[in-house]
Write a protein that binds this DNA or RNA. Structure first.
Lengths: 208, 208
DNA sequence: GAGGTTAGTGACAGCCGCTGACAATTGACA
DNA sequence: TGTCAATTGTCAGCGGCTGTCACTAACCTC
């Protein structure tokens, strides 16, 4: 069992995160001040910054949880799977198991709404994209290791991951700006767009 | 001929941009305050913000010039070229004509150094990536139009552009973190990686 | 070329995100 | 229970950014 201190810390962090997400999704990211979040948990502003490096980190914390899980899922895919297949399966796994990851902090409903806030708030989208670049680097190393390659000598791991991530970006964007904002929808879109990348790279689209 | 007012404005903007880039490249982005930049041009801080929406906009202004040029170059490619070929040629054109675009404000040398600052400053990299997403949307529309497609009905334009942009991201990153930081180098890397994307997408890399 | 109009600027005040420093409090552990 | 360490609150301050308003300089018309 954890110590009382650790439990208290965890509770404070969860409370801050929950309060932040609730405020962000209801009044918008820019329309929410850190003071408000801290006040909602009855904690000093300084304490907020001891748990989150910045306001944006609180906004991205939920997505971060799923992202870490996704990288682990790729790492755990059977080694014989080709790179793109492993990435595809891992991301689909992620969308199916999202409940268990998020629900301990906030309802999935809030997670989805937070996703829209991120996508529609320039500074958050920027931070999210920057984080994605780091994740791509991690993924490239995982893929390289799976294939027994040196990530700095062979460009294919980074290129494959970049292509995959590019497709996922399009997917997220279409999903978050569309009308059907359900989990089923993004699962479907993921498969659809991953299947579509081949045809999109063919020289002449008019033949197809 | 432009009016005197417009010329003055242009000169102030250029001076601010030049001062900003010089300070950013010499003392770093975070290590430079807006007050410093304004003082270097002998202008109030308030005036700086009348020309640039934020400190980051001044840091990205040079790249923005080349990006706009690039989009125009894609638009101007011969219509019979397949999408990826048009994008490839346009980006290479861009690297060859960069002097004429940038030199009116700062020496190309400074432009290149600024690129490294962007790539190594988290908040700038984030802003740069966010802008890239917007550019991708523009490019997708251009490509769709070239091919006579509806960008919202056919996913291929967005997918092709996303793949291309992903490869260019890898290129920029490798270039800016490598030892050879020359124009020749990025031209070579661009071709190399664009050629590499095909093999990277094949199912089994061990065959190749 | 005088006089009114408009655009650009400076000065000031203020909000918000974020940080360092130090003191106060609370849990851990002997 | 007393000591030590971890957590928190308070306060002071910096830097990015914005609204406001008065002032100056360029423009335009007669």
């Amino acid at each position: 069992m954890e110590t009382l201190r650790e439990r208290k810390k965890q509770r404070t962090r969860d409370a801050l995160l929950r309060a932040a997400v609730e405020l962000f999704t209801s009044q918008g990211y820019e329309g929410t001040t850190v003071d408000e979040i801290a006040a909602a948990v009855d904690v000093s502003q300084r304490t907020f910054f001891r748990y989150f490096a910045g306001k944006d980190e609180a906004a991205l914390a939920l997505v971060e949880m799923t992202v870490e899980r996704f990288v682990e899922a790729v790492r755990a895919r059977p080694p014989h799977e080709p790179p793109l297949e492993a990435l595809r399966q891992a991301v689909l796994e992620g969308w199916y198991s999202i409940n268990e990851v998020v629900e301990s902090v906030v309802p999935v409903e809030l997670y989805l709404r937070m996703y829209r806030v991120i996508e529609s708030t320039p500074v958050l989208l920027a931070a999210h994209l920057r984080r994605s670049v780091e994740v791509e680097e991690d993924l490239a190393r995982v893929i390289a290791e799976r294939e027994g390659l040196d990530v700095d000598a062979d460009p294919r791991p980074r290129l494959a991951v970049a292509v995959f991530s590019g497709v996922m970006r399009v997917t997220e964007r279409q999903w978050s700006t569309g009308a059907d904002f359900s989990l089923d929808r993004i699962r479907a879109l993921t498969s659809l767009y991953l299947d579509g990348v081949g045809p999109a790279l063919l020289g002449d689209w008019r033949e197809a």
